[in-house]
């Protein structure tokens, strides 16, 4: 059973529809104890970072305990940003802090028509792939490292809608460029996060959800 964490940010309908289509048994736990019984946790979210305050100390403890106990966790959009230490969007609201770094407002580039919010389909790339490959004089990698993006071709397109984003750190398994590179997908042990919406990203998105569900066993 997968626990879908509802903290009142936007709606869960589209994530529920995708999980139903994939034949997944899921619940929306009413209290933190529900996290302990789940094979995997999904923290979805659209909207404002401050909405995550609904996940108070008992929720944070339950989610943290489950992850330390080996339960895979997938954060989507604001749910991914929450895995970091915090966000410029709500500086006083702490993130879960499983990953280091803080989320920042994308700056865009209005002179070149690069608008914020970043809305639409954009490409996933292995982080720093081009620069590293050039420095090492080797071809750019042909696949993503880690489990979450397994089976996706570099430059696969996914659907984004956000204004804030996490930095490209060691946990980043795919970056996307919107005037500047940011972390599009992160993975460290059993902690996964995607800035985009796999439930709205067609076949590529369903592949990513399947990969996460496989990690949940």
């Amino acid at each position: 059973m997968i626990a879908l964490i509802d903290y009142g940010a936007g709606n869960l309908t589209s994530v529920k529809k995708a999980l139903t289509a994939l034949g997944v048994d899921f619940r929306v736990p009413r209290d933190p104890a529900g996290c302990g019984r789940a094979a995997g946790l999904i923290v979805p979210g659209v909207g404002h970072f401050s909405a995550t305050t609904a996940l108070d100390a008992p929720w944070r403890e339950a989610i943290g305990d489950a992850v330390r106990g080996g339960t895979p966790l997938l954060g989507i959009c604001v749910g991914m940003q929450w895995l970091f230490e915090g966000s410029e969007e709500a500086p006083d609201v702490p993130g879960l802090g499983l990953l280091s770094g803080r989320c920042r407002l994308l700056r865009g580039d209005s002179a070149r028509g690069v608008k914020v919010p970043h809305v639409g389909w954009n490409a996933l790339e292995p982080p720093n792939a081009a620069a590293e490959a050039a420095a090492l004089q080797v071809p750019a990698p042909e696949r993503f490292r880690g489990r979450l993006l397994s089976g996706l071709a570099p430059a696969a397109h996914v659907y984004f809608t956000h204004s804030f984003a996490a930095p490209v750190t060691a946990a980043c398994v795919a970056s996307t460029t919107h005037a500047e590179p940011f972390a599009a997908a992160v993975e460290r042990d059993r902690v996964f996060g995607v800035q985009f919406h796999p439930e709205k990203s067609g076949e590529a998105g369903l592949t990513i959800l399947r990969n996460f569900l496989e990690a949940c066993g």
């Binding site: 309908t13 589209s14 529809k17 289509a21 659907y159 809608t161 919406h197 439930e199 709205k200 067609g202």
Partner: peptide, 8 residues
Amino acid sequence: VAHEIFLP
């Protein structure tokens, strides 16, 4: 429609 497609 939402049942058919996983798009915005």
